[in-house]
């Protein structure tokens, strides 16, 4: 075939080209097409009311989704989008911007090991290694084989005074020795067990010393934050 012929065939093809979408598009969900669990809907609606503009509730809504499903599942994002009247793409874009939102399944318990400067100077890399080893995650950014413990390195968590430190299920602990990792992982695996009770940030005084008193124990407040029901490991599926 001459180049001219090839070219004219290409032209013909262009004028007949037809493609099918590879999936359904997703605009603002029609509320009637999305089933949203009552409690989730209520929580998101309440968040929306707290701000002059409803979109301000996107982060709270994603928190709600993540607490409910363990991670920001596509279905969960769609549900939040349906309640908020925005596109799921909008919320997914937000979720992917922030480090604390997971767009993939993670473990029941989250261990964030600070590896930033101050902690690094005091042995954070070893601590991260120790956690990974204790939970057998095979490296940072993964979960233990039983899906119970997820470990990842994290940027400065704002607790360099207890370096090297970790955040376990949103509470801070430090300073830790690599040996603490095994204890912590075991405690997480045991239902009802307190994790590293002697290393809690709450118990620390301003200038480093131990802070005393039991009457000062702060009880978590739940006004806009129901306690996270931990997802069942079995219910998680890998994002395809």
């Amino acid at each position: 075939m001459s180049p001219a012929e090839i070219h004219s065939l290409a032209l013909e093809a262009a004028l007949r080209e037809e493609r099918e979408p590879h999936a359904d598009p997703e605009g603002v969900p029609e509320p009637s097409e999305v089933e949203v669990p009552r409690a989730l809907r209520r929580e998101i609606q309440r968040s929306m009311k707290r701000y002059p503009q409803k979109r301000s509730a996107s982060i709270p809504a994603l928190w709600a989704v993540q607490r409910r499903y363990g991670w920001c599942t596509p279905d969960g994002i769609r549900q939040a989008a349906a309640v908020m009247g925005v596109t799921p793409a909008y919320l997914e874009s937000i979720a992917s911007f922030y480090d604390l939102f997971h767009l993939e399944p993670t473990g029941d318990h989250q261990v964030l090991v600070c590896t930033n400067i101050s902690c690094w100077l005091r042995g954070a890399d070893e601590l991260l290694g120790a956690f990974c080893e204790a939970a057998e995650t095979g490296g940072p950014g993964h979960s233990s084989p039983d899906g119970k413990v997820y470990v990842r390195g994290f940027e400065c968590l704002g607790a360099c005074d207890i370096a090297p430190m970790v955040s376990i299920d949103e509470r801070y602990y430090g300073p830790l020795e690599p040996a603490d990792a095994a204890d912590a992982v075991e405690q997480m695996r045991m239902r009802g067990e307190e994790v590293l009770p002697a290393k809690r940030l709450e118990d620390r005084g301003a200038a480093g010393g131990k802070r005393n008193p039991a009457d000062d124990r702060i009880t978590a407040h739940t006004m806009n934050k129901p306690k996270r029901p931990r997802p069942k490991s079995a219910a998680r599926k890998k994002k395809s």
């Binding site: 702060i218 978590a220 407040h221 739940t222 934050k225």
Partner: peptide
């Protein structure tokens, strides 16, 4: 407040109330 400061967020929520 940064999301990592969950404890502090809880404390502030209670104090604000």
């Amino acid at each position: 407040i940064r999301g990592e400061y969950d404890l502090q967020g809880d404390i502030l929520d209670a104090a604000v109330e």
